[in-house]
Simulated scan of single mutants.
Amino acid sequence: MSGFVESLRLENAAGWDGCVKHRYVDELLAGTISDEVMGRYLVQDHRFIDAFVTLVGAAVASADQFESRLRLGRFLGMVCSDENDYFIRSFAALGIGDERHDIPDAAPTAGFKALMKEAAATRSYAAIMAVLNVAEGLYLDWAQRLDGPMPENFIHSEWIVLHDNPFFVDFVTFLKGELDRVGPAEAEVARDFFRRAVDLELAFFDAAYEGDA
């Protein structure tokens, strides 16, 4: 019998698969994505860090087990160090300077930031786990599609490795276990946040190509 998270993935299969098999993922894994699209994507993705740190912090505060708080705390430290460093180096390599701060949030960016803050404000561990399972599990799924050599450009290769490494795989497994454990007691809340997160992820991937031919 499948678990709660698997049932949510099946309910949202079209959106989930739309992200994992998106043009953005195909081009990223092949190392053929244009600097313009990658830059547009990273500028918007970097906007999530503040809301994401808030979300993970709320998960630490609302977790019902000490070991869960420790796991989430270790992950929070990684987000605030390794991942943020990747963004800074990538912006420099792409020639994207402080002008990026003047670029407005794309609609999916604003929507996802609002969703993360909404989930954090609920203090519902199930709601928070639902959003995290999409934000992290979906990225692991697309990163594990790599079936050839790693792209040579560090902007591409490090973004893939950040989302497919032993620590990250183990953390996604932990997130799935947590939502399987606490989700059924708040099934409708978890289902709502999971669905909206998947829809926003797909819109976010699409937005990276807005303005391209």
Score class of each variant (00 low, 15 high):
Asn12Arg: 08
Ala14Ile: 14
Gly15Phe: 02
Gly18Asp: 13
Cys19Asn: 01
Val20Tyr: 00
Arg23Glu: 15
Tyr24Asp: 08
Tyr24Met: 15
Val25Leu: 12
Asp26Trp: 06
Leu28Ser: 13
Leu28Glu: 09
Leu29Asn: 06
Ala30Ser: 14
Thr32Phe: 04
Ile33Trp: 10
Ser34Ile: 10
Ser34Cys: 11
Asp35Cys: 05
Val37Gln: 04
Met38Arg: 10
Met38Asp: 03
Arg40Ala: 15
Tyr41Met: 13
Leu42Ser: 10
Asp45Leu: 10
Asp45Tyr: 11
Asp45Thr: 09
Asp45Gln: 11
Arg47Phe: 01
Ile49Tyr: 07
Phe52Ile: 03
Val53Pro: 01
Thr54Val: 14
Val56Glu: 11
Val56Gly: 07
Gly57Gln: 03
Ala59Ser: 00
Val60Met: 10
Val60Tyr: 10
Val60Trp: 07
Val60Gln: 10
Val60Phe: 09
Ala61Gln: 04
Ser62Trp: 06
Ser62Asn: 03
Ala63His: 06
Ala63Ile: 11
Ala63Tyr: 05
Glu67Arg: 09
Leu72Thr: 02
Gly73Gln: 04
Arg74His: 08
Leu76Val: 11
Leu76His: 06
Gly77Thr: 09
Asp82Glu: 13
Asp85Tyr: 07
Ile88Ala: 14
Phe91Met: 05
Phe91Gly: 03
Ala92Leu: 08
Ala92Val: 07
Ala93Gln: 12
Leu94Gly: 06
Gly97Met: 11
Glu99Leu: 01
Arg100Glu: 11
His101Met: 15
Asp102Thr: 08
Asp102His: 09
Asp102Val: 02
Pro104Phe: 03
Pro104Gln: 03
Asp105Pro: 01
Ala106Gln: 11
Ala107Asp: 14
Pro108Val: 06
Thr109Ala: 12
Thr109His: 04
Ala110Asp: 12
Phe112Trp: 14
Phe112His: 12
Lys113Thr: 10
Leu115Ile: 08
Leu115Pro: 08
Met116Cys: 00
Glu118Gly: 04
Ala121Thr: 02
Arg123Lys: 14
Arg123Gln: 15
Tyr125Ala: 05
Ala127Lys: 10
Ile128Ser: 10
Ile128Gly: 06
Met129Glu: 13
Ala130Phe: 01
Ala130Gly: 04
Ala130Leu: 00
Ala130His: 06
Asn133Trp: 02
Asn133Glu: 07
Ala135Val: 00
Glu136Tyr: 05
Glu136Phe: 03
Glu136Asn: 00
Gly137Met: 05
Tyr139Glu: 08
Trp142Thr: 06
Trp142Ile: 06
Ala143Asn: 00
Arg145Gln: 15
Leu146Tyr: 11
Asp147Lys: 12
Gly148Val: 03
Pro149Gln: 11
Asn153Thr: 07
Phe154Asp: 13
Phe154Arg: 08
Ser157Gln: 07
Ser157Arg: 09
